[in-house]
Every structure is written in structure tokens, then in C-alpha cells.
């Protein structure tokens, strides 16, 4: 295959991690996380390179990656908003947050703004029910949200 897309850092981290598991396939989830950290999503080329590294067919990589909601098999915006709309957040007004975001960005849930800045999705329970409603903005939790708190947060993003 051609030039590697994943960084040296990726490969050295995976080599370190390899000793922690009795099988190399067990590296698949950590490898997909690390690859996504580098590119923001998992393109077919990246899935293939991960498969090459582990020694499995790209179809097997995709079979696993597509099972989990956190792996982005399509590009996402610079800011990935994952608003929890499960029971506890629903009871605490998360629907209003979702509708507000849809209106603010002019997109529906599951879509990305044309400038590729924001992707909006509904998320299942984030485990922050005591501080509902909650959402994730990329990797970070934001809790006890209101529409105005959300606006403050979003309006400060570059």
C-alpha cells in the first residue's frame, strides 16, 4: 500500500498498547478511537490502514466500527454537538435544546452546517442525569443546560 495516513504517534501508541492484550484484534476499538482523534472521522482509507495494522480485512473493521455510534463513518463538523434526549434529559427539557439548535443552525438532527462548522445529533443517555439536560461538545460534557447557557457556549466558538 501507499504512504501511511496515520501518524507515528498512532503507531507508537498502538505498539505500547499491544502488550496489554492477549490478542491483536482487541486493539481494534482503541485503534479506531486513536485514528478518529487524528482525522475527526474514519474514512475508508483509514479503515483499511487500521485493518492492515491489525491484520484483518477492512470489511471486518467496518463491521465492528459500524456497530458503535461514536465512530464517525462520515465527516462531521468541527464542533460535534451531541445532545442527550434520553429519559432524564427529556424530563428536564432537552427537546427545547435540540429545537433551538436546529433553528439556530438551520439544520435538522443528523446534519452538518454547510460551512462544516457544526454537526447536530441526538445522543442516548450520557450518564449525566443528575445534571440534566446534558450534551457533549466534541469530547467535553456540558451539564445543567438552558437555552441561554447553550447560546453563550456556542456563540463563543471560533
Amino acid at each position: 500500500m501507499g504512504k501511511k495516513l496515520l501518524s507515528e504517534k498512532f503507531y507508537s501508541a498502538m505498539t505500547t498498547l499491544e502488550s496489554r492484550y492477549p490478542s491483536k484484534v482487541a486493539l481494534l476499538l482503541p485503534a479506531l478511537h486513536a485514528a478518529q482523534d487524528e482525522f475527526g472521522w474514519l474514512s475508508p482509507e483509514i479503515l483499511e490502514e487500521v485493518g492492515d495494522f491489525i491484520g484483518i480485512h477492512p470489511a471486518q473493521v467496518r463491521e465492528v466500527a459500524s456497530f458503535y455510534t461514536m465512530y464517525n463513518l462520515k465527516p462531521v463538523g468541527k464542533y460535534h454537538l451531541k445532545v442527550c434526549t434520553n429519559v432524564a434529559c427529556c424530563l428536564r427539557g432537552s427537546e427545547e435544546l435540540v429545537q433551538h439548535c436546529e433553528k439556530k443552525f438551520g439544520i435538522q438532527v443528523g446534519e452538518t452546517t454547510r460551512d462544516k462548522k457544526f454537526t447536530l445529533v441526538e445522543e442516548e443517555c450520557l450518564g449525566a442525569c443528575g445534571t440534566a439536560p446534558a450534551m457533549m461538545l466534541n469530547d467535553d460534557y456540558h451539564e445543567n443546560l438552558t437555552v441561554s447557557k447553550l447560546d453563550q457556549l456556542l456563540d463563543h466558538l471560533e
Binding site: 476499538l29 479506531l32 478511537h33 465512530y71
Partner: peptide, 12 residues
């Protein structure tokens, strides 16, 4: 005894 953190990826 060794201990390793393994992250899931979004699946109930």
C-alpha cells in the same frame, strides 16, 4: 497484576 482501561464506543 496489570490493569488496563478499555474504552467502549457508544453501545448500550
Amino acid at each position: 497484576f496489570d490493569l488496563t482501561v478499555h474504552r467502549g464506543a457508544g453501545a448500550y
